[in-house]
Nucleic acid binder design. Sequence first.
RNA 1: GGAGAGAUGGCCGAGAGGCCGAAGGCGCUUCCCUGCUAAGGAAGUAUACUGGUAACGGUAUCGGCGGUUCGAAUCCGCCUCUCUCCGCCA
Length: 422
Amino acid sequence: MLDIKFIKEKLEQVKKNIKDRNMVADADLVVKLYDLKNSIQQKLDTLRQQRNENAAKMKGKLEHAVREVLIAEGKKLKEEISKLEKDFEEKEKEYKIAMMDIPNMAHPEAPVGKEDKENLEVKHWGDIPQFTFQPKDHVELAESLDLVDFDTATKVSGTKFYYLKNEAVILEMALTRYVMDIIIKEGFTPFITPDVAKEEVAAGIGFNPRGDESNIYTIEGTGTCLVGTAEITLGGYYAGKTIDASKLPIKMAGLSHCFRREAGAAGQFSRGLYRVHQFSKIEMFIYCLPEKSDEMHQYIRSVEEKIFQGLGIPYRVVDTCTGDLGASAYRKYDLEAWMPGRGDFGEITSTSNCTDFQARRLGIKYKDENGTNYLHMLNGTAMALSRAMIALLENYQQEDGSVRIPEKLIPYTGFDRICPKK
RNA sequence: GGAGAGAUGGCCGAGAGGCCGAAGGCGCUUCCCUGCUAAGGAAGUAUACUGGUAACGGUAUCGGCGGUUCGAAUCCGCCUCUCUCCGCCA
């Protein structure tokens, strides 16, 4: 949510931003509804003032006739007030709905563009492996190494679910532990968060739990939904709180399952583990002072890079273009790992600086000697385990069909190679 | 899941239809006093929205929502949370 005063002041910028982001939202309507709502409120306040004054006149002893006149006046005011209150509530609701559609402003240096093709590559790390044989993709590898069972999962749970088996189970746990160790050393407090969140929390973070295009599973009749990411549970953690500035930045990291409907997502780039309905992920989250958020954003990105450099997985970093930002993000960097199976880069992490957009919706403020104000919130993937698994299997595959385990991971797995089953 | 008790400002705690945005205490801020410290005295000390250049006003907020009333922290209904006891479970 943006500050309404900002919208009124910079209306043209806000409208351009909506257009750059390739989104539909009516900033003019928001301003109109705000002014209307306000003028009703002013009338309402005046009437309430009259009601209060009228009631105050009746405090002591009064003659019956005098009292009767005042009561009649009070009744009249009461009626007017309740009528106007209804009107006000209606307009306020409309205003809030319209307001929720307005996306965050984009960073002035974020590339302007419509879709992910226009994202700007800003960095490249590692050498793309040169194979002396035809590399397999992770689905073939998982099959020959008996690591993932998609078919049975389809029968039991539906498409885009999977069972991890054998070394893949240990590998997922090893990756989790490897990431946790790095992140704890960086000063993040580790969490395992709930996998369920209230719909208003999800909406506050910027996920719309309702509607056909929603990527969120709702739980019928409970007002809750399955989380698509621990960003929701970590970002909801301080909802409604005011935090002392001396406590900032707050750095949290949460492991959760992530559930996504992925309606309509198909095609070869969605193959296998790449786009699934359920996966596990460790998410970083930072609450900080507004003037620190750009710096924190770079910091989260550097932690993400450290994690994948440690595994020796080649990647590039892209600065996400305006059309691909999502409603909450002011700026977003994605790490894309080299995936030999597809012969291209594939997204493995994403970090967003959401500035005070989520904080306004969730009511999260900081307090210092100048008073209270909304703080800034940032999130970033430490590791999406299913996608990391793809990058690992595909980049570390050997000619004999086995997969090597990166040096730094061996202490966590206890084995240095996954071999084909006989 | 069942029964009971409770929810008031930064904290403790009074308040039981109008004199209550809310006593008193603690804390905090400023000032006075005392050679330092401790003690003492005075004043101030919630948030949001809103009117006004400002001074200063207005409205709302006593867990939440709804109701009764001319008027609700106070009465009524529903909900949430906390505590105690019982049941059930990993």
